[in-house]
Design a protein around this nucleic acid. Sequence first.
DNA 1: TATTCGATCCAT
DNA 2: TGGATCGAATAC
Length: 203
Amino acid sequence: MGVRYSWLDAPASAVADTAKTLLGWRLSANGVAVRLTEVEAYSGLGADPASHAHRGPTNRNQVMFGPAGFLYVYQIYGMHLCANVVCGSPGEAAAVLLRAGAVVDGLETARQRRPAARTAHDLAAGPAKLMQVLALDRSANGTSVVDGTGPATLTPPPDGEKVGDIVAGPRVGVTAAHDVPWRFWIAGDPAVSSYRRHTRRRR
DNA sequence: TATTCGATCCAT
DNA sequence: TGGATCGAATAC
């Protein structure tokens, strides 16, 4: 059932293109919808040292090794959640991290969920902020975003909407593969996360 | 079993 | 710039 999207079937080697394709798409959940403004691509097993999947399947990353169109949700820094959409064929373990979005529906609800946000474009300008605005928790891990069975749904941009120019740069926060420009965002969009190079923790 | 440290956010 | 905070991954 549900809608089939072409990016679901793209091979893991094309995950960077897949990531770019997702810019401008809508992700809606629990009464709030965002337009995706920033994403990052992670390729699969072995190929990408920055990927959670590059050392093989573990309890945490197992949904990355499943079929495309499902959410891989993980906790980071002991307190934040981030979500990826799995791409490619089962076993390829490619994924796109959803890094930021602009709230396009449910603005009041979004503001209530993120009182720390000072401006509208900061409501979902980061991967953990996005999760908070959409009220998604770790129970969303392993659910589909394309067949309506999960809490979140991904849909294409409205007909005629221009996505705008896409810019590429290094991925945020990762300690490996700093030179791989697999972060993509919509040029000039205010609702993107701020980049800070990974700072190693002092001892 | 013990230790390390992160695909972050926020206040300073 | 650093602190919060905890579980997955790695070291032992």
